[in-house]
Amino acid sequence: MTDKKLQIERLFRKHYRAMYRLACILLHDGDESKDIVHDVFAQLLANDALLGEATAEAFLLSCVRNRCLNEIRNRKTHERVKQLFMLDEDLEYTSPEELETEIKALHVGITKLFPPICREIIMLHFAEGLTFREIAERMGVSETTIYKHLRGALNQLRQTLKNAEQ
């Protein structure tokens, strides 16, 4: 094995988790995210340059982000919404640091959602993948009620993010 391949293997093992995590945050899908990280390293293997250790992480994360954004930008709106991809105006603010700050704030915000049904709906939909109809059936309420509470929950979370910005 060449020195270069050894170096790339070391970088792969060291940065895989952070790179995969970033791709998942943007693409919401494990398989697609694996492919993105795969492609970044495949290109590194095909190129001749060596990466400086000090800047490797920033570079690798930039590569992941750029590939994800291309992936998202290549899709039309009706395709993006199926996977809840971000719209263009949000894509600008997606540096790894910005995303991690937001995620932290969102997690805190979710624990504080009020009334409790708001939190419950968020968990059932996003963590367990239930549709709004399934949630409505499980709770014995109408879908309109679910929508109302979901709107309430999302507005609270938006407020959380606004406060976190300041």
Partner: peptide, 28 residues
């Protein structure tokens, strides 16, 4: 758009949650 934006971000936050459990040495 604002509502959708929050849906997308929330989805991203939950996707990040799964990563810690999912990424093992075996997977790498």
């Amino acid at each position: 758009r604002e509502l959708y934006s929050m849906m997308a971000k929330t989805q991203g936050a939950f996707a990040a949650d799964n990563v810690d459990a999912e990424v093992t040495d075996e997977m790498i």
